[in-house]
């Protein structure tokens, strides 16, 4: 319960330094996504899909992860709108720009996968797939690994509202709640109201997605994911529960989708609430920052992204023969068919 002092505080006791750090990361994520969109429209990359609109919530997630490699640390089974999570965990814009431009230096996939599909063993971001909802199935496995390992590490998984119709979402609920081995999984659903074009309200009869938790008597919450403070506190509470109780928690965050679904819906700006603009107004009103200060954050961020983008443009595309790398981790036998049919 907030006490009298924090009830009046729009930032619920969060420190100024943290608030400005959150703001800086939100701007970084937004500016980077907007650059990706430009790249996708100017032939400097292909398909775009990403997370503009989810920055408030995703920064709150990324900054509170117990970061590291192996089952003593949190695992992240993410989907394609998670750039703000990864940036908050220390991933740099240039690494992501490389994947957008599918150059050889793309360390997540060697130019093979879409933008915002990471694989980062050092911080337990497991390989991301364009298939919706399969991350809720693999989260079962990383959740078991966390459950079997002494300590407080947990598994995080996120996805969209539309995807919750898939069996994998329900697999995760069932497996995380097995009486013989509950799993410390924070199941996140970002509800932006749409799948690609289909509306949540027309396809789903559930009042709230978080209601699925009721069947299992597991804790759940639906929050305003456009509010970084509410997001921060909700993520904190949910993570603390999973860490301590070694059980699952379902967190539904309502967020805007500011550029539609992806390139497949045109990637044009849509008039929905903008979490960054709202946050900036609050910061200025509370005199925690000046307009000029916040503008400087944007300016510096854009300069950084520009420089990184220029560097990436000069980097080579992968060699065609690199397709044979990593088919198997121990290489291909000489006799493996490689001609693509008759010689």
């Amino acid at each position: 319960m907030p006490n009298a002092a924090t009830a009046a505080d729009p930032f619920k006791g969060l420190e100024k330094a943290l608030l400005l750090r959150i703001h800086g990361l939100m701007v970084r994520a937004r500016a980077l996504e907007e650059r990706f969109i430009k790249m996708s429209k100017s032939g400097d990359g292909y398909f775009w899909i990403g997370g503009p609109g989810e920055e408030a919530f995703n920064v709150a997630v990324g900054l509170q992860v117990k970061k590291g490699q192996g089952p003593q640390f949190d695992y992240l089974n993410l989907h394609y709108r998670s750039s703000a999570i990864a940036l908050s965990m220390g991933v740099t814009p240039i690494e992501m720009l490389r994947q957008m431009r599918n150059v050889a230096t793309d360390r997540f996939s060697k130019g093979r996968n879409f933008v915002n599909h990471y694989a980062i063993p050092e911080i337990n971001i497991v390989p991301m797939s364009p298939t919706i909802e399969t991350q809720y199935a693999t989260a079962i496995g990383t959740g078991i690994a966390n459950a079997r390992t002494p300590g407080d590490a947990i598994t995080l998984v996120n996805g969209g509202d539309g995807g919750t119709a898939e069996g994998d979402f329900h697999s995760c609920l069932v497996w995380a709640n097995r009486p013989v081995l509950k799993l410390p999984i924070l199941m996140i659903v970002v509800n932006n109201g749409y799948a690609i074009s289909a509306k949540m309200r027309e396809e789903h009869g559930e009042k709230k997605i978080s209601d699925w938790a009721k069947v299992f008597d597991m804790p759940a919450k639906t929050i305003d994911g456009n509010d970084p403070v509410e997001s921060w506190l909700a993520v904190k509470e949910a993570m603390a529960y999973c860490r301590k109780e070694r059980k699952p928690y379902l967190l539904e965050a309502a967020c805007s989708r500011l550029y539609g679904h992806s390139s497949s819906s045109g990637a044009n700006r849509i008039p929905e609430s903008d979490c960054i603009a709202l946050f900036e107004t609050k910061l200025i009103d509370a005199k925690l920052a000046t307009k000029e200060q916040l503008e400087k954050t944007w300016h510096d961020t854009l300069a950084e992204i520009d420089a990184a983008h220029q560097q990436v443009k000069a980097e080579p595309f992968p060699k065609p023969e690199s397709i044979w790398e990593d088919v198997f981790s121990d290489g291909l036998p000489d006799s493996y068919p490689r001609s693509g049919g008759s010689l």
């Binding site: 192996g70 089952p71 695992y75 089974n77 497991v126 390989p127 399969t134 809720y136 199935a137 693999t138 989260a139 079962i140 496995g141 990383t142 959740g143 078991i144 690994a145 598994t155 069996g167 994998d168 697999s171 995760c172 069932v174 497996w175 097995r178």
Partner: peptide, 18 residues
């Protein structure tokens, strides 16, 4: 549980965790 997708997903997550 009787869930082939869950079984394979669990295996993949566990494999990634070594």
């Amino acid at each position: 549980p009787l869930d082939e997708r869950g079984i394979l997903g669990a295996a993949l997550g566990l494999a990634w965790a070594g």
